[in-house]
Design a binder for these strands. Structure first.
Lengths: 184, 184
DNA sequence: TAATTGACTGACTGTGTAGTCAATGTAAAT
DNA sequence: ATTTACATTGACTACACAGTCAGTCAATTA
């Protein structure tokens, strides 16, 4: 594997596990068997390395979203979205951890401001499109509430409760939305 | 004001504004006109100072919760809870910021693990009690979902969207729960 | 073959950090 | 008046950190 990629992968892992502020570049070098000089040859600062990592996680999210077939009914798409969210959160825990971490840390939040804005606008828009097709009423507020629900679940699962009944909650959430819109 | 209290107040403010990891004790001293030695006289480490601060914010949350009159109907209490949450989040932004910050930062999350567990158990229990009285069905899952909703709103408001339509969302949330349980 | 480029190294620098400690100030108790 | 107990200071230590830089090495180009 080429060393630049290696730096990115190890840094992603360490930033996720220990937090950005608590991971020194020296630690990244040590873990990935690379000299300090090389890191600063490829990335002009530690901050810049984080930006590259965060940038590529945004692409990952966008791709995840685009994999949802637009020919299905909006309710099906919503359920697919919920499903893929729960699958992701379980399988790629660290990925979500890093995202929560940098978005709630004032310094990194500031550093990544433009990227976060871009990403959140994209997500909001995707959800709005689905909601608009299901139920034109209160599209805006319902979209925000839906996003808050998922984000809150991620936050509670990863950071707050340590025996979070994820399956139970997933089923209840699905039930809720099915009930809400199947009746109409 | 006595200097110990002063240290706590300034530290709370700076930790909230800039994050725990990004606030040095020197900065706290400088801002509160106190010597470094005094901070370590009153608190045996920077971590211990954070624990005291976090501990007292938990008490604040518990008091906030206890102020809700248990003689009212469960639906009224739920609406009161929602209302006080939205009032708090607007008026005491920094308080929520700090909480999000330390709970999503692996190092501080670890440090405060016992306190976080205690606090989250308390909150879950309070919500469960209300939900049990309104609707015995799926009490557990619905309580978790409700908490996720509020936490997600806080996260989105404070960390993700920077023009979050808080009022709109509050109204929609209230409408949703009223509709759900007034019909029965 | 000689020159150029870019990946790569690791010792080094300067700064900021948490935490210590011996000394001093202060006010109440004996 | 003397002791006791604690609040307070700021210079100090030891260390970890991000970032630099002079120089090595290997591959490509002229």
């Amino acid at each position: 594997m080429d060393k630049k990629t290696q730096i990115i992968e190890i840094a992603t892992q360490l930033f996720s596990e220990n937090g950005f502020e608590n991971t020194s570049i020296s630690k990244v070098c040590e873990t990935s068997n690379v000299s300090k000089g090389l890191v600063f040859h490829h990335f002009k600062s530690k901050d810049e390395l984080l930006r590259e990592i965060f940038s590529s996680t945004t692409e990952k999210i966008i791709k995840m979203n685009q994999s949802i077939n637009t020919e299905n009914s909006p309710l099906t798409r919503l359920l697919e979205l919920i499903n893929s969210f729960f699958t992701q959160i379980k399988e790629d825990r660290l990925f979500f951890q890093l995202n929560l971490n940098v978005m709630t840390q004032p310094k990194t939040r500031e550093l990544l401001n433009d990227l976060i804005k871009e990403r959140s606008a994209f997500i909001l828009n995707s959800v709005k499109q689905i909601f608009k097709q299901i139920d034109a009423e209160n599209t805006e507020a319902n979209s925000y509430l839906f996003i808050a629900e998922l984000d809150g679940i991620a936050l509670n699962y990863l950071g707050i409760f340590d025996d979070y009944p994820l399956e139970l909650i997933k089923n209840q959430l699905i039930k809720k939305y099915k009930k809400k819109w199947n009746l109409k």
